[in-house]
């Protein structure tokens, strides 16, 4: 085996596979009779893949368990509700997406600055509390102050929604990839391993944590905007649903967070299971199955599906190598 072979294979895996997937995604709406269902299903895949990738970007390396996903996603919903109502959009959709992302970024920055000094488990409690607080405050504001329950958002076509999601996915993957490959990725992992040592080795621990938390929140906010134009009706229940905090976390853990593909694979598998369950006879058992898989994953698959696949692959390669040397 020579060097040029290895680098080609690496390049193929790093750029080629994602490119093929991207091209396949772009053509989803053109697959004939299947396209109508396909576009809805794939939009759902994309939503959860983005949320899982964005969540894992921060939590996967730092180990800080964030349950604030629904808070930022919900901000996206309300950005759409206020700027893109059914009575007439105030600004173009891409501006709404940027606003949703920016507001989420700022809120995450503030929340991070306050809470990321806290030890792991407190942070998890705090972020879950944030979702519940936003739910209460927004609900109070809508019902008691404005006297309304929900707001209707302008409906977008399935294609527009779909391509926006593809765009946000590309941005998410690129951001995740560059953070992982850069020195900031290394710093994040050092924080996950031993925060105190990282600080004494010159890593500006607080700033890096806050920034990455805010970046991942911005992506979640952007997704929220687009989903709101699909569901069209925004109220506190749909916007700040704690399940939106839990699901992407489970998906990323199930897929495995040691690798960029892990959260994406976990999200795809789970969204599909969810689709099957919710349309089939088992639709009332979704959460039950979800919980059982979560516990089983933590007990038996600590590094997720990707970890399992990698282990198997190493074993196969090892076996092959042994066979070769023996033969």
């Amino acid at each position: 085996m020579n060097l040029s072979n290895i680098s080609w294979r690496k390049l193929g895996l790093n750029a080629g596979v994602p490119l093929v997937i991207l091209i396949a995604l772009i053509f989803v709406p053109f697959y004939g009779s299947w396209a109508d269902y396909g576009i809805t299903l794939f939009s759902l895949f994309l939503v959860y893949i983005i949320l899982a990738v964005a969540w894992a970007m921060f939590t996967g390396s730092t180990g800080y368990l964030s349950l604030a996903t629904a808070a930022f996603y919900g901000i996206g919903f309300y950005a759409a509700a206020l700027l893109y109502p059914a009575e007439g959009a105030l600004v173009p959709l891409f501006v709404v997406v940027l606003v949703g992302a920016a507001v989420s970024f700022v809120l995450a920055f503030i929340v991070g600055a306050i809470t990321l000094r806290l030890k792991g488990i407190y942070f998890a409690m705090f972020t879950l509390g944030l979702v519940l607080l936003m739910y209460q405050v927004v609900n109070y504001w809508l019902i008691s102050v404005l006297g309304i329950r929900g707001i209707v958002v302008a409906l977008e076509s399935n294609e527009v929604i779909y391509y926006y999601l593809v765009g946000i996915l590309v941005v998410s993957i690129l951001v995740a990839y560059f953070i992982k490959r850069s020195k900031w990725g290394l710093a994040l992992r050092s924080i996950g391993d031993n925060e105190e040592a990282a600080a004494h080795t010159g890593v500006n621990v607080t700033m890096i944590k806050i920034l990455v938390f805010a970046i991942s929140a911005a992506l979640m906010g952007a997704v929220g905007v687009i989903v709101a134009t699909k569901t069209t009706y925004v109220d506190a229940n749909t916007a700040f649903n704690p399940m939106i905090s839990f699901s992407p976390a489970l998906m990323a853990i199930f897929g495995g967070m040691g690798n960029l593909y892990g959260p994406a694979i976990g999200a795809t598998i789970f969204t599909y299971i969810q689709e099957i369950l919710q349309t089939g006879s088992l639709k009332n058992y979704y959460m039950l199955i979800f919980g059982l898989i979560l516990i089983a994953t933590i007990l038996y698959l600590p590094s997720g599906m990707m970890g399992l696949i990698q282990n198997l692959w190493n074993r196969i390669k090892g076996a092959r190598r042994r066979a070769l040397t023996r033969g």
Binding site: L65, G120, F246, N284, L288, L294
Partner: peptide, 25 residues
Amino acid sequence: PGVFESNGMLAAFGLYFIVQNIAVL
């Protein structure tokens, strides 16, 4: 212990889903 705390919490989430679902059923 840190890993136990976060994994324990996640498993508790699993428990939450399971109990909730059974109760709603």
